[in-house]
Design a protein around this nucleic acid. Structure first.
Lengths: 358, 358
DNA sequence: GGGCGTCGTGGAAGCGCTTGCGGTGAGACT
DNA sequence: AGTCTCACCGCAAGCGCTTCCACGACGCCC
């Protein structure tokens, strides 16, 4: 010690003071109590085979008695093993999709590993926050890997991170040139719109989130156009409505659609939450959803079940789990080549909001 | 590094190799490049006033050139300032309430401070996970504070943490003897049930989440009984139904209620998500919600707006923000006494699912 | 014009741990 | 009984920083 404050009477008191809130016992304390050197104590605690069983026991007991916990910084600095730290970068948290995916991610990360991983949360709301994240890299030197959820990462950003030694995987966003787990949004869109087409609808509207920055290119909307084209149906611009993400947005959009001279007989919403808004507007207008007007969404959000909403389900939790496993594979061994990106399947869930045109 | 692979020709190459993925430049590198000692470099980087402006400039330039970032562990070990780390302990993430609260928390934490705080996420699903968390304290020595969201912490657990030097604050759970920010769930319950009573309902059912471990004592249910008692209404056990949290639970519960010989004319659900299920069952049964049967929930979940559900709103985001500020106050200065627990107000939001009894 | 504050800087110790290397004692040999 | 092995253990270096202290160089005063 440098300047022990003129030790008060009784080393007992000093002891009390040295530990106390926050500090905790040090490795030296443990070693002393166990009657060994710090080196041996360290080895015992780290399960090195070279320490005699009896000695290890003594050290472990001493450590337990003192309620000892290694200092992660010291340990890491000295080159010891340490838990892997992963950053989770999400644009939202109050939306079901992100929360649910994170639950899966957490599970995938901790699987069979015990609690050997620290999850750092980075909430990057808008594009600005996102850019700032990759620019200043608050995660730098703090994490071994980063999971980017639900948005696009450009090549420069990826390269930057990889160069700094942090692995990166993407989940729930667009396909990426680096390890990622996604669904095929274009296919999901097709499943939804094709369903409407097969039911016989000719005037199908698109209710799309205008969120420009989330999940990169809007494949779901692209699928709408493609499906119409394949069915030989024209794309009527009046039937394409962009709205803010969420129920109110969907409700407004549906209102606009109903105001048309030729309202659609079916609506494809790019997300269930938007579809929910549409359903509300239709009901208020006294229309029979699934009868007068059909509505289909994407995601299989819990609200879909409540509204009896036909939708295209995507495995959200599973995407998280898969991403978690990827991170473990990346960090725990193989380079970026060791893990294969995955595209998980989606499927149509038939419920009551779709039916043949009136 | 330890075993440099037999240095290839040219120190240039070696240099390249020394830095490269992950490692990055060290303080010494910066100092050397700037032509000063490590001490001065450190001081310059940490904005100590005692270093000459010109020198500081040189150091900063050198650091930028080398893309230098301090090693957080070394810095912390050596007693330097470091960003504060807070653990967020949540039982769920896919439920709107928790996600929304976390968004607020994040905002409250980062406010005006720049990105000077690290958020560690701990997902402790069930009671077991919760106990394990407090037992093994994975957060120990890793965080300066912990925010517990939406569940009760017993005195022993709290004491344990506090002793280890980690401040603890609770948000969105029950009131606690330590800094916490909550709403008055009993009052919220009263607002909901009193509303039904005032409308003239006499047979009011309770649809309560059976989740035993979330948010401690079930004050919302208690409020139901008290409100009935105050109104001179008997509590009919048939009208009290416990269901799993969520829409399907609410739907089932409502089904049970409708099967009664004397079904209720109004239903109080302890959460909007449960209420949503109830509404669905009622609609399917062909009943007019708000006419034949009234339904009121709590939370003002987004689904409430979509369903035109009368509810008691609670400020979720604000609870998070307030908790975030508390953490800052706790860590950045005053002890536990410096911050006052807060109980945020709730208010009835009148919508279409409630009306006088038929 | 030499004592003396100031300012700017370098040297060195040390934060709490891990680990390579060398040393010690107890058997196992010859 | 005198070596040679091992199996264990302690010593000390060092991870990358921060900071106390000392020190040289000025510029100031009386």
């Amino acid at each position: 010690m440098v300047h022990e404050p003129s030790a008060p009477a009784g080393r007992r008191v000093v002891e009390e003071e040295r530990r106390g809130a926050g500090s905790g016992a040090s490795l030296d304390d443990v070693a002393r109590l166990a009657g060994v050197s710090a080196s041996t104590a360290s080895r015992a605690l780290n399960n090195h085979p070279q320490v005699a069983a009896a000695t290890r026991e003594r050290v472990l007991t001493a450590a337990a008695g003192l309620d000892y916990v290694v200092s992660p910084e010291a340990s890491r600095l000295a080159g010891g093993a340490s838990r892997t730290r992963v950053a989770v970068v999400v644009p939202h948290l109050s939306r079901w999709f992100f929360g649910r995916l994170l639950e899966g991610l957490e599970a995938g990360l901790r699987e069979e590993g015990g609690t050997t991983v620290d999850v750092l949360l980075f909430l990057v709301g808008d594009v600005g926050g996102r850019r700032a994240f990759f620019e200043h890299l608050p995660a730098r030197r703090r994490v071994d890997a980063a999971v980017v959820v639900g948005f696009e990462v450009d090549e420069a950003e990826r390269a930057r991170l990889e160069l700094l030694g942090v692995h990166i995987v993407s989940a729930g966003g667009p396909r990426e040139p680096f390890p990622s787990v996604t669904v095929d949004d274009h296919r999901a869109g097709r499943q939804a719109v094709d369903h409407l087409v097969h039911l016989g609808h000719r005037r199908i509207a698109l209710l799309a989130s205008e969120d420009p920055d989330d999940r990169g290119p809007d494949l779901r909307s692209a699928a709408y156009r493609d499906a119409l084209a394949d069915a030989g149906l024209p794309v009527d611009d009046d039937l394409v409505v962009r709205v803010p993400f969420g129920g109110p947005g969907g409700a407004d959009g549906m209102g606009r659609l109903l105001g048309l001279r030729h309202p659609p007989t079916a609506v494809f919403a790019t997300a269930d939450e938007i579809a929910a808004g549409a359903v509300r507007t239709l009901r208020r207008a006294g229309l029979r959803v699934g009868g007068d007007v059909s509505v289909v969404g994407i995601d299989d959000h819990p609200v879909a079940e409540m509204l009896d909403l036909t939708t295209v389900a995507q495995p959200v939790h599973e995407q998280g789990v898969a991403a978690g496993r990827m991170v473990r594979a990346l960090v725990g061994g193989g380079g970026p080549g060791a893990v294969a990106s995955r595209v998980l399947p989606t499927h149509l869930v038939l419920r009551g909001t779709t039916g043949p045109p009136p």
